[in-house]
Design a protein around this nucleic acid. Structure first.
Lengths: 299, 299
DNA sequence: GCTGTTTTCGAATGATATTTCTATTTTTTG
DNA sequence: CAAAAAATAGAAATATCATTCGAAAACAGC
């Protein structure tokens, strides 16, 4: 919000050098021009041609998933939520050719401007006097928001491809840890209940690597992973990839390490509330996958 | 965006007088309390009971008509667009009981938060020509219906009791199988992440009975079970009951065998679609439980 | 395992935004 | 119509923010 006056000016002779040097290893070298709209930015981020180091990737993931926080917050607030230093945000913006964070933030503000949320359906709930009830409502809201996003932005083509591959597979390996584990357990359960043979790679007894070591090219892997991507899932999927199995992924951004390993992937972004993330959308998509596989196989 | 630190503090003895004098001819005298949400503010404005002088009326009209500008802009930008001085905006906010503009602006930001404009895809997908998409939408509908039922018919008293018992427990045993297992895995994971010690009774190695054999009266059992109630969950809970632990249950009808074994129980009814049941509501309630326990323990 | 480079962190700095205060104008009231 | 009260505008003061820069840490290449 501040420091815009000087920032908008042409750089002085000294900072010109600095800026030029920095930009040389930035997007200009890659033939990109400064994104003028939020959609352009999103396109550049998802193109996969830019590879960020850890902290900058963290920034990319955060603003991919929480654009409204970026639009509404100050640099300090955004930095704290994203878990980085404020200066990291400035660096990120400058890599894209902006003079600083404020300049960069305008993208998000412009995108948001004019779109005022409709009067909420719930007629004010008598002010939610109870703190626990407030949290519950927030959590329900997060679930519904996650589910709502499926309605729009759903890549039905990728979904169909995934179903085809899964239906054609000899054996389906289901992989996911931490937050994704509830999703994979339900997937495995419903697949089995529908008569689709599958292996849940749950790493009980630390046998996961041995399990994926048995994968053949005729098998398919259904992997689920959410940010932060610090579980063993990518390692396991990498092995499966080497063994030439089909890799199908459900994940929450293009920055997931699963994306470059997978034949087809679906983006499912879960909202969180108070640090607790919803799983509603992933489960719904997962059930749809199971249903689709069963339908293909019984045709 | 700035100057919030001091503003949030209690007014000093000098400004206390000033503020009190001002507030005496403000809304407090009219029996209004400081609006906590944008909706409340809007209600007050539209009630017609408040009569503003020229400039303040100008402000009221502007933020009625351009809420998103107020949320996104700085006080200077808003003031210019509204055609008033920045200090007028501060006065306006203070009349409503806020410490200043920043404080007041939070109403607008909060209202806007989380509502990111969707990329406006085709509104209704031409009647779902795709069978897979139809199922997915049905599944999403089932999830939303399940979540919707929480809003109404939620036994908040039972919920509070459950949280109290869980918070008081020495060790929490989480039990659930089949369909309920994804819920219990997520419960166990989030409890652990929040530093609440717990045991997930997952029956790996068929050790579940031995595990529950270690339960003491100071422990609590959080059991999840859905119909048909043909899993081993009731058996395990029965053992825990004999061992005089507190039993807290999430289940989907009064006919559940868990009901007569448990000290307190919550009814969460999940809808199904095409034989695939949603877990969204149970997960949301589960997260709320975890949140509640953490809140109780950190008091 | 070392060296040169890239990346990150954190404090210092310069700039902006918000608020307070006072003189002036407008409105109300006797 | 005059005097008092209220409201406003504008400037000064203060708190916060965004940015820069140098040092430390992490990383990659040899």
């Amino acid at each position: 919000m501040s420091g815009r006056g000087k920032a908008a000016d042409e750089p002085s002779s000294h900072s010109l050098e600095t800026a030029a040097r920095k930009r040389s290893r930035s997007l200009a070298a890659l033939g990109y021009t400064k994104p003028q709209t939020y959609e352009e930015l999103r396109a550049v981020l998802s193109s996969g041609t830019v590879h960020f180091p850890k902290r900058l990737r963290q920034v990319a993931i955060f603003l991919w998933q929480h654009p409204s926080e970026v639009a509404l917050g100050t640099i300090a607030q955004v930095a704290e939520q994203a878990g980085v230093q404020p200066s990291t945000l400035v660096r990120f913006a400058q890599i894209f050719g902006y003079s600083g964070f404020s300049d960069f933030q305008l993208l998000f503000k412009d995108r948001m401007k004019g779109s005022w949320p409709d009067p909420q359906g719930s007629p004010d709930k008598a002010g939610e006097p109870n703190v626990d009830l407030h949290f519950l409502n927030g959590m329900v809201g997060a679930c519904q928001a996650s589910l709502g996003r499926i309605g729009n932005n759903f890549d039905i083509a990728a979904f169909e491809t995934m179903v085809d591959h899964l239906a054609a597979a000899e054996l389906i390996y289901v992989i996911g840890s931490k937050r994704a584990f509830p999703v994979t357990t339900y997937l495995s359960l419903t697949l089995s209940q529908q008569g689709v043979r599958n292996v849940l790679v749950d790493n009980v007894g630390s046998t996961a690597l041995d399990q994926v070591g048995c994968i053949t090219p005729r098998d398919a892997v259904l992997a689920v992973s959410f940010s932060p991507y610090n579980s063993i899932t990518p390692d396991l999927v990498a092995v499966a990839h080497e063994r030439k199995a089909r890799i199908l992924a459900i994940t929450d951004s293009t920055f997931s390490p699963l994306v470059k390993l997978s034949d087809t992937w679906l983006e499912v972004v879960e909202q969180d509330f108070g640090g607790f993330r919803s799983l509603a959308a992933s489960l719904a998509v997962g059930m749809a996958l199971v249903h689709g596989v069963v339908a293909r196989r019984t045709d």
